[in-house]
Amino acid sequence: MTATDSQTDTAAPAEPEARAEAPARSLPDALPLLPEDPPRVGDFWLRARLGANAAGYLYSASDETGRDAVVAMMAEGSSDDPAARDRFVLAVDELPPEVVLAHNDADDDDLALWVALGPVRPDDGSSAAADEQLIAERRGEDVLSAVLMDKIPPIGKVRGPDFRHYWEHRRRPGLFRIWPLPWPTALRPASWLAMILSLLTMLIIMVLAILIAWLLFRNSPEVEPEPVIPTPSNTVTVTITPTTPPPGTGSPTPGTSPSPTLTSPGRPQSPGTGSPGTPDPGDRF
């Protein structure tokens, strides 16, 4: 056996180990969700954006049991086109049944269509988990490509301007409905802490406002004159003490009572209270 054969035999057993330790495929970077993205569709909570085009969006999602999936959801413009909705449903129906984890009803005309694709195992750094994730993403891209019809080969020669759908500029996520509401299940511990601190801050501000109002008005004088409270018969009686005339003015004018009694309008006056319609200069309410 030559030295060359010895080196060949020595290197042969190491090849399977090199294959076993092959690094996993790198997954494309996911983007965080935007405020316009739905937090949940069906039983799946959306975690990040994986891709987007004029037809819709790809999301990374998981349900309450921890099952991971890739969700393909139509955009606002494509979901309003009946023909685009039919292409989405047809593309989902052509997928193997075991890879379609869930989808909404095609009869919901007011909602955007979506489908959850899998199976996707948790990301443990292995190549198998990365392969399942990539396969699910490719299937979601195929569904959205069927809506756009961008992979259909043209018939004849390409001439004239490029074809574009009339709804391609409407790229916001389609309409969705959440029931039951995601709050407070979707809140993380940090969100719970922020919500509790905000409620405590509001409570402290309310207590301070009440305390400041009490300190400002606790020594305020009473309202003068005191408010007149009518009797159950809607009659208000006010007794006025006559003033003493100054010296040299003589006695009061005959025909006037020194202690008149005033009644509410609409009731007759008592005899001797003076002529009607002539107010006493000393009347005060």
Results as ranks from 00 to 15, higher is better:
D9C: 01
E17R: 10
A20G: 01
L27N: 07
P28N: 12
L31I: 07
L33C: 07
L34S: 10
L34H: 06
E36V: 14
P38E: 06
P39Y: 00
P39V: 07
D43A: 15
N53W: 08
N53Y: 03
A54I: 11
A55Q: 06
L58F: 08
S60E: 14
S60A: 15
G66A: 04
D68R: 12
V71M: 06
A72F: 04
S78R: 11
D80H: 11
R85D: 09
D86N: 11
F88L: 06
P96L: 11
V100P: 03
N104K: 01
N104F: 00
D105V: 02
D105S: 12
D107L: 05
D107H: 02
A112W: 05
A116T: 11
L117D: 03
P119M: 07
R121W: 00
S126Y: 02
S127P: 00
S127T: 07
L134P: 01
I135K: 05
E141D: 13
V143Y: 04
M149T: 08
I155H: 05
I155R: 12
K157W: 01
V158E: 12
V158A: 13
D162H: 10
H165K: 14
H169W: 03
H169R: 14
G174Y: 05
W179K: 07
P180L: 05
P182Y: 00
W183E: 14
A190W: 00
A194C: 01
L197P: 00
L199V: 14
L200H: 00
L200I: 14
T201S: 13
L203W: 07
M206F: 13
V207C: 10
A213S: 15
R218M: 08
N219H: 14
S220A: 15
P221D: 12
V223T: 15
V223G: 00
E224S: 13
E226T: 10
P227F: 03
P227Y: 00
P227T: 11
V228S: 01
P232F: 01
P232K: 07
T235N: 12
T235A: 08
T235M: 12
P245A: 09
P247T: 11
G248K: 02
P252I: 03
P254W: 01
T256Q: 11
L262W: 10
S264M: 02
P265H: 01
R267N: 05
S270H: 09
P271M: 03
P276M: 01
P276D: 10
G277V: 08
G277I: 08
P279W: 02
D280I: 00
